[in-house]
């Protein structure tokens, strides 16, 4: 079981309020991703849940039990660190055994669990090596193995993939998602990469400066961002945000249109512009369009390969159904 409730949890470092009081409930078995730009307090929030930092106010409950004052060892949570934090002087087996040893588990049960974890994570081949002899991806697996043997109430991941190269990252992303669907244990995952958030999460928590900007499923956030910040943060490439006269026509401060919701024509359309750089990914093509008469340059995403040269004139037409409108305070207008 792993239902985690944060009740008016706040954190101050001296005079600096890193996290103003916030409420959040994480249901049992949920995969929750904390996402936000660096310095938004997402890692601090995770460390508060872990017990590695004291809260300055509020209450943390794990499965209904008040855990605010509990030391990390007693909370029944497992954590995977960004640096993996493997014990360099122990073999992979001993690393994984360490939490079980600390819990005073009988040797046989320890062995059964370690072997099981090793099988799930394909660690068997290097179970007697030391972390120094492993590659980044292998170390990551060991760190996860050390977390799963404990059968914790919840897993905490602190940017676990950011030290891996791009190809490996995609693979590990998939593995963690599969692990979640197999174990069905609560997972809290911190990342600054919104792609990771979108692909892995049941529920995304978008944080900025310690505030929760929005909580929702990936598609909710994509379709109905609550404010300009979430609109700009979720989605890749970024949503085009347009202020000024064009927004005024729609009776608001800012309008937003995602690059994939703009159609392109060489002859007619709503906004006329000139193509700058175009990026060909094969599956998609991105255009950066200047001189549209709008204050901002526009990014456009077109499916497939489209021939268009720098300097060509294009006409852009937004899909009016997919237009987002925001008021003076940056909040969504429906």
């Amino acid at each position: 079981m792993g239902r985690i409730t944060l009740d008016k949890v706040a954190k101050r470092f001296g005079e600096v309020e890193v996290i103003p009081p916030l409420d959040l409930t994480i249901e049992d078995g949920e995969f929750v991703v904390f996402v936000g730009p660096s310095g938004c307090g997402k890692s601090t929030l995770l460390r508060l849940i872990a017990g590695l930092e004291d809260v300055s106010g509020g209450e943390i409950r794990i499965d209904g039990q008040n855990a605010t004052e509990m030391p990390p060892a007693k909370r029944g949570l497992a954590m995977v660190f960004q640096s993996y934090a493997l014990y360099p002087h122990m073999t992979v087996r001993k690393n994984i055994a360490f939490p079980l040893k600390m819990a005073g588990m009988p040797e046989e049960e320890q062995k059964r669990r370690i072997d099981n974890a090793a099988k799930i994570l394909n660690l068997t081949d290097y179970i007697d090596r030391r972390p120094g002899q492993l590659s980044g991806g292998q170390r990551q697996r060991v760190a996860i193995g050390r977390a799963i043997v404990r059968e914790p109430a919840a897993f905490l991941f602190d940017e676990p993939l950011s030290n891996l190269d791009a190809a490996l990252r995609v693979g590990m992303r998939l593995e963690i998602t599969e692990l979640h669907s197999r174990l069905k244990t609560t997972m809290i995952y911190v990342t600054h990469d919104q792609v990771e958030a979108m692909t892995m999460a049941d529920k995304i928590v978008v944080l900025r400066a310690g505030h929760i900007e929005q909580v929702g499923s990936p598609l909710e956030l994509y379709r109905t961002p609550r404010n300009v910040f979430v609109a700009g943060f979720i989605g890749s490439p970024k949503m085009n945000l347009i202020e000024g006269g064009e927004a005024g026509k729609h009776g608001c401060k800012t309008i937003g249109i995602r690059p994939e919701h703009i159609s392109v024509s060489p002859t007619e359309g709503m906004w006329k512009g000139r193509v700058g750089v175009s990026e060909h990914l094969g599956s998609d093509t991105f255009f950066y369009v200047h001189e549209t008469g709008l204050r901002e340059d526009m990014t456009v995403r077109v499916s497939g390969e489209v021939e268009m040269k720098s300097g060509d004139t294009v006409y852009l037409t937004p899909d009016m159904d997919k237009l987002h409108r925001f008021d003076d305070a940056g909040l969504r207008l429906s």
Binding site: R47, G51, L52, E53, D54, P71
Partner: peptide
């Protein structure tokens, strides 16, 4: 970066 426990 620490808790009351570790500080004391």
């Amino acid at each position: 970066m620490s808790t009351q426990h570790s500080r004391s």
